[in-house]
Design a protein around this nucleic acid. Structure first.
Length: 375
DNA sequence: TGATCTCGAT
């Protein structure tokens, strides 16, 4: 019924810890959907139905995968037939469908399905925000505003999420004047911006090379007694690193502990990338060690900048080359596939240095990485 | 809990 590699995935997941049978089934549905094996996916859903295993989580995976494949109508059909599988077709389920349609690129389908069902299930603030998000993402601000008016007509005040969507849209088009105007407007209406709102503006300003303005957002946030989180700090470190203020980036990184904010994978990745971009190899390596001690598991993007930094040095000394090979090996041993570009770069350097043995090792590792990958 | 996220070179 189900191919062998899929069981490999389940087995691998089980190795990482206890998973409830239900979760195993749900993740199988997700994997089949990811591979676009929709016939098998539906077969599994039917099997789950007999065992009474289907929940909204299952159906949301089904709808999300169908939407991702561009099969929007099929995703909507899955919602229509949801009750046949014993999952209630309520506003929560509709919101899940709309969210999947919006995130996979069709706010139009989300809107039409909303119009179809709004009379039989009362919309909640989330329903409206999902559509506002969709239209803002598609840069259709007039449509987003119409949804916001509709939201108010239904007796819901636009909240921090609604406003943040508009702010993000303005930021994407570098219209910081309107982004700030919206920030003022929401406060006038008694809606407090939160850490996500501030992160959106600060990061956008930083990316637009307006570093001082970005740091002003940080001050504004502190004045409004909004507490930063690890995502916010990661964005701040990113901006400081990008603008060449590596010392400040390090200060923020070290300060997090004092503020009682845990450094997560993103924080480490950002700091490692900053260190690599400034060719601080030793510090980058120390960070890698520190993150392991901090029980933070590196992923493929953690090694990419390290590998790149090592390969970049055209006339690489032996020590550096060893490091590069080490990062490559770590990537593969952790079950990830190094990027093709990095792979070619490393091979090129090894060739120049006339190290055939190491080159063969890397080639073998790459084969292993590709063969090991079940998806 | 609906909104943010580090992927660079073109």
């Amino acid at each position: 019924m189900i191919g062998f590699p899929l069981w490999g995935v389940i087995w691998a997941k089980n190795q990482t810890g206890y998973i409830h049978t239900l979760e195993i089934y749900d993740s199988m549905v997700d994997v089949l959907g990811k591979r676009k094996k929709f016939c098998l996916m539906w077969g599994l859903v039917k099997e789950m139905e007999l065992k009474g295993y289907i929940s909204l989580v299952t159906m949301s995976k089904v709808m999300r995968r169908l939407a991702r494949a561009g099969q929007y109508e099929d995703a909507i059909e899955a919602f229509r037939g949801m009750e046949n599988f014993g999952v209630s077709k309520d506003i929560e389920a509709l919101n899940t469908l709309m969210d999947a349609l919006v995130k996979e690129g069709s706010v139009e389908h989300a809107h039409s399905v909303f119009m179809e069902f709004k009379d039989c299930m009362p919309a909640d603030p989330r329903s409206f925000n999902i559509l506002i998000h969709g239209y803002c993402k598609a840069r259709k601000l007039d449509d987003a505003r119409k949804i916001m008016d509709e939201m108010e007509k239904h007796g819901f005040q636009p909240n921090v999420v609604s406003y943040s969507c508009f702010i993000e849209s303005y930021c994407k088009s570098k219209d910081f004047r309107n982004a700030n105007a919206t920030l003022d407007e929401m406060q006038e209406k008694g809606c407090k911006p939160n850490v996500i709102t501030y992160t959106i503006i600060m990061l956008a300003l930083g990316k637009a090379k307006q570093v001082n303005e970005a740091l002003e957002v940080y001050d504004k946030m502190k004045r409004n007694e909004c507490v930063p989180d690890s995502s916010f700090y990661s964005s701040l470190i990113y901006i400081l690193g990008q603008s060449g203020r590596l010392k400040d980036a390090w200060d923020v990184f070290e300060d997090m502990e004092k503020q009682g904010i845990r450094r997560d994978l993103l924080t480490y990745k950002t700091m490692i990338t900053s260190a690599c971009n400034h060719s601080q190899e030793d510090n980058a390596l120390k960070l890698l060690q520190r993150m392991e001690e901090d029980s933070c598991k590196p992923d493929i993007q953690t090694y990419a900048p390290l590998l790149k930094m090592c390969c970049k040095k055209k006339r690489m000394k032996n020590g550096k080359l060893e490091h590069a090979c080490f990062f490559f090996k770590e990537t593969v041993l952790k079950g990830m596939i190094p990027e093709d570009g990095t792979y070619k770069m490393l091979l090129e350097v090894l060739e120049k240095n006339d190290t055939t043995e190491a080159k063969e090792k890397i080639q073998k590792l790459m084969l292993r990485a590709k063969g090991q990958n079940p998806i």
